[in-house]
Amino acid sequence: MEELLQEIVNVLVVVVEACGAAVIIIGAVWAFLLFLWVGLRDRSTRNFVPVRLTLGRFLALGLEFQLAADVLKTAVAPSWEEIGQLAAIAAIRTALNYFLGKEIAEEKRQIEEDREAPSDAATDPTHHRRTGGSG
């Protein structure tokens, strides 16, 4: 019975980790294509931020899958060394997920500020003086 459970958990861990890896790979390739598109078409720094936001979302989703695989692994972790390695990996992934979440929130805020800035500038009569509108 225990061996059967171990077999099932091992298969599930591989499947869930493969899902996480697939999400990360797809996100990296998608972000690369977007970087190429934005870099060759627009040539502005501002347009790189939404692409990084997209990549961050993919990474966060992939990390969630990998953390799920870590939780599954705890069902069968026979030796202390394996438990230690699992704890280290889970700590890295959890910390990364936390910081990614913060970064995504920060970049979202930045995008919203950038969206609001042109409308503020349009209503502000002194805007042309501040931004050097004469040139």
Binding site: I24, G27, A28, A31, F32, L55, G56, G62, R93, L96
Partner: peptide
């Protein structure tokens, strides 16, 4: 960002 993806 992409190097972190590679590390993961």
């Amino acid at each position: 960002d992409l190097l972190v993806a590679a590390g993961l």
